[in-house]
Design a binder for these strands. Sequence first.
DNA 1: CGCTGGCACTCCCAGTCGACGGGTGCCAGG
DNA 2: CCTGGCACCCGTCGACTGGGAGTGCCAGCG
Lengths: 392, 392
Amino acid sequence: MASPSDPAARTAARVAADGADAVHLEVAVPADAARAAVEAVAEADDGAPSEEEPLDARKRTILRAIVSEYVSRGEPVGSKRVVEVARLEVSAATVRNEMSALESLGYIAQPHTSAGRVPTDKGYRRFVDDLSADPALDGARRELVQELLGTASDVEDLLARTSSALSQLTRLVSLVIAPAVDAARLKLCELVGLSPGSALLLLVADTGRVEKRSVELPAETTEHDLDRVRIVLSEQVRGRRLGDVHATISRLAEDAPSELREVLRAVADATARELADDTVHHVFVGGQASLAGDEAFEREHLSRVLQLLEERATLARLLAEATADDRPTVRIGEENEVEDLRAASLVAQRYQLVTAGSLGVLGPTRMDYATVLATVRAVADQLQETLLDLSR
Amino acid sequence: MASPSDPAARTAARVAADGADAVHLEVAVPADAARAAVEAVAEADDGAPSEEEPLDARKRTILRAIVSEYVSRGEPVGSKRVVEVARLEVSAATVRNEMSALESLGYIAQPHTSAGRVPTDKGYRRFVDDLSADPALDGARRELVQELLGTASDVEDLLARTSSALSQLTRLVSLVIAPAVDAARLKLCELVGLSPGSALLLLVADTGRVEKRSVELPAETTEHDLDRVRIVLSEQVRGRRLGDVHATISRLAEDAPSELREVLRAVADATARELADDTVHHVFVGGQASLAGDEAFEREHLSRVLQLLEERATLARLLAEATADDRPTVRIGEENEVEDLRAASLVAQRYQLVTAGSLGVLGPTRMDYATVLATVRAVADQLQETLLDLSR
DNA sequence: CGCTGGCACTCCCAGTCGACGGGTGCCAGG
DNA sequence: CCTGGCACCCGTCGACTGGGAGTGCCAGCG
């Protein structure tokens, strides 16, 4: 599989090509088969990190087979198919008994009596927990990630491209939120007069992020006043944290000569809005189109999810909350608090810069968790690296 | 939102609500067939594309009734209903004859033999052309527009909110593109060192728009060099047009002392990308969710349209091209060159600032053109006014 | 005791049939 | 030129049916 003349181009072509009828995973299945064989013999009891009920090796194998088969085929999978795909040496009837057990444990369910089985949220959860610690992305894709994110003209552009890459690679909705800025140090604080009554306040952080706010100036403000304010600001604010700017300027206003006080107050007002609006504007969403193609979402439902994707503030909260620690997080179906996402899964990871931002993808619960996890990890790593490069 | 007694709002709500059980019809095929038939018989007016054939008053009334009834109800409308809704003093049979005539003229079509009639693209076109010159928005909505757009902290924020307002008011996909900047005058040109190897170039236009580009500095650049470059830039570039910046800085680089030349070249490089990326980043899209609710778009199709909405560059081109003159533009179905928009209509209008930007909405051909046109106009007007205020 | 093949059963799905009804086109008469 | 009447067309809906996939259970086997 790995001897191409032009690896990057080939991967790109493949990624582009198989979109039509979604054969998601090439990674997971063969790996599963191999691991299944081993565990069937060994049956080493797992360390049981959280409160998972013990599942014997064969049950685990069967569950794994059902999940990956259902993910790739999209149809309920029956006992016969399980035998084939998991290469089990037992009969379908035996598997049926096991499946019946798995069902009463809540890992799988049948859409209708006498249809095949489908993983439940709990089943997916178990599947994900049982995944090998860190699934790696295959070389070609990793190269593609590097190619897509290696260069960047500025942070914002980079994040936008990250989002685009993520959605292209996974064919899911991608979410990227910019690192919070309140801990970043200010490199520049500038006030630009646009017209007699108004000015623009510019704040540039050492991460390269630029915030701007228009300021309504008192009517009697002179050019000269403005110059003085500019100097004061530039001197006093530089080097401070963005989160402290409002307090700093407010204090300046109190101590300032009366003719400058009003102007400084206006500037302080402008910075008050800063932190509230802040993250909101910096959520990047890509690949909504993929949702429409997915049968998991009915019209009505689809519409609500798309609406959710437009509420940047909610999204930011959602993602931030899901990436509380450093490890990749998977929220499956009902595990999502948000009502509209009960049929969806979120795979997210944090990335570090000065402060952490996060990124992830959102898609139907029926997704190829192994590959998606690997991709999210790889993209997060690459993003972090490029960001580091950028502020090197 | 608007009060429920407000007729326009009621219409909008109804249109939005009954999407669920609307019939999907292929307008194109029967229309083509009909037109072919006509041309075979009549073969008189082949060469006249944009000229409207005369239509007697009753036919116009009937067409109008069919369009508005179909838009609000979503079902093919029969002769009997036309009589009711248009309050005609003739019998259904008579109307049937007229409808038959309208059909062979290509204004309406039947989805299947012996179903009611549905407007063709040509029918909508005629309907729109026959609309009273400028449909006004009712008071309540106009107030709402003002409320939504009256205040703004900066241009970008304003445009984002315009987009949101537009999609909420029309329940369609909204598109807003920022005014092109190359004619705007620069108020500030600043170079901020972020780390030894890199800096950030800031350009602020008198419209309040901020452009930023990161610049890779030559390794040997000193703090002092940077200060000198900063002064040169600040002096030489201020007041110029954004479109001329690249040329100006390139010239500066040639004339500069050798130790500054490389730095200025790097800055010039950064501004080269300016105009290309420019408009791309400043397209605001809102209300995608409304597409999902609409039966006019099949899954596959929906997905392609959503994808189109993510290609900002294409969108910008599309919209700019549609708003060549000052008047509101309506592109109905097949009138759109873009393949994926054959089932959609675009209603757009330009707004003026220093240079023109444009905004509009995109939705199924089956939309309430009168209300939508009025809304687009009102929003464009209000936006323009607020922008003017902002740079007063 | 666990595994197996066999078997009856359940239920979805796709296709067929027929009644129904809305809407049309045409025609003969005012 | 308009009208009521009438035959006809066709899509929709419900009922019915056969096929098929998958299950649960059971009796028998190693």
